[in-house]
């Protein structure tokens, strides 16, 4: 895929900026959103290959966003990232057909490899 597109959703500006610069450097078409509501607005207007979302956000958390995305855009792989990992949220992610669950702090190169493996047509990397 020449210029894959990604939507990054995180209420932390620092993470949005870090990932914006990184994915742009890799040649990706990246859009960022600071909330789940904003992400849903963007998805109505823009084609996205992968959605990368924080789990813990005010109003609509990453799992609620995943539920909405699964209903309206079932083909978009959703990758969750969280600084508060738990068995419960990881199981909930698995049951909600989340493609991947990444814990913060992350190595951005590792995160990139995981996200890239969920692009349509890419072979998923197992661990």
């Amino acid at each position: 895929m020449e210029h894959p597109s990604i939507l990054v959703v995180d209420d932390e500006l620092l993470i949005r900026d870090l990932l914006y610069d990184f994915f742009q450097d890799q040649g990706w078409d990246i859009t960022v959103a600071e909330s789940g509501e904003k992400a849903l607005e963007i998805l109505q207007k823009k084609k996205v290959d992968v959605l990368l979302t924080d789990l813990r956000m005010p109003v609509m958390d990453g799992m609620a966003l995943t539920g909405r995305v699964r209903k309206s855009f079932p083909d978009i792989p959703v990758v969750i990232m969280t600084g508060y990992p738990s068995v419960e949220s990881a199981v909930s992610a698995l049951r909600n057909k989340v493609a991947d669950y990444i814990t913060k702090p992350f190595n951005v190169n590792e995160l990139y490899k995981r996200v890239e493996s969920h692009l349509p047509g890419e072979e998923e990397e197992t661990v």
Binding site: V87, A90, V91, L94, Y101, T103, E124, E125, T126, V127
Partner: peptide
């Protein structure tokens, strides 16, 4: 003996559910 790592591993390896 669930851990976050084991759930992630199950997810990445294609399990559809995980029960404790």
């Amino acid at each position: 003996c669930p851990t976050v790592k084991s759930v992630i591993k199950a997810m990445r390896r294609g399990a559809c559910d995980f029960v404790v």
